[in-house]
Amino acid sequence: MLGVDLNTYRFDYDLTFAALVMNADGTTYHRFGGRDETSASSRLTVAGLVRVLEAALPEHEAYEKGPKPKREGVAPRTVEQIPTMARRIANKKPDCVHCHTVNDVERELAQEEKRWKRDDLWVFPLPEHVGLKLDSDDVARVVSVTPGSQAAKAGAMAGDVLVTLGEQRILSEADVQWALERADAGPTKLPLVYERRSARVEAELELAAGWKRATALALSWRPAMWGIRPSPGFGGRDVSADEKEKLGVAFGFRVNYLVDWGEHAEDGKNAAAAGIRKGDVVVGCDSKRDFAGHAHFQAWFRLEKKAGEDTAIEVLREGNPVTVKMKVLP
């Protein structure tokens, strides 16, 4: 991302693949690319990308023929200009700055300046977050609507074809996510237009205060998760499916580090003093065992645990169950 104008190329920087369909003047017509906690490519299909490319062509032709919107003179802004990144570069200029680093250094700066809020974690909500399950190959088409969700209350139904959400014409999940990202944290109303049997329906998503908040599982793949506290002070690798079967557990990760570096080394010392050891297989915490994996455990601990409270880490040590009681550090 070195030298890339962040005011022009705007997308979910946590993604490992993102495509922008644009005009050369910097106008973005559509975005493509998205993921969830299951994998980095869980929401990418070639058919979906081709559909976006094809459907955007007439849009581009119309844009070229029509009057151009006035573009305010917004100065380019690069990752190098962000003070927290500038300091990193001063220490050692990297050959490559990954997209997610933009979010990392923005968050670090906001934390330094005491303006970061925990709600800032919730970015680019997936369509399902407002109740819309979309067709992965033709994502304007609604596959199902979660009963009771904001989309259901707006009247959306399976088979509807999304036209616009907010000001964004919808051709991709990323378009939906962009419209949701741009919406206020709430309470707010977001205009939704969809087609049902060729008839145009105008509706609104009613979004309550805090509507962007999601689950630890939804957060677990985002690098931002690692920057929040409290932290357990240890972590490791998920054990294999075979090993889980042998151990008789549905979830487990083998501890392969206790934090002994940086400004939070006390977390690792705390875990060690409580009795966590490298090689332990963590299978639960405070009776919760339905974690999807190590990253989910880490996100859950950071979101749910409160400084000063006692927590019980359930581990298997050489196959034997051991409960490690640990105080959560701030």
Binding site: M1, Y9, F11, L15, T16, F17, A18, A19, L20, V21, M22, N23, A24, D25, Y29, L53, A56, L57, H60, E64, C99
Partner: peptide, 13 residues
Amino acid sequence: ARGAKKPLLVVFR
């Protein structure tokens, strides 16, 4: 893209 009046596809990965 500007010269050809074609749309631009930018991929970040």
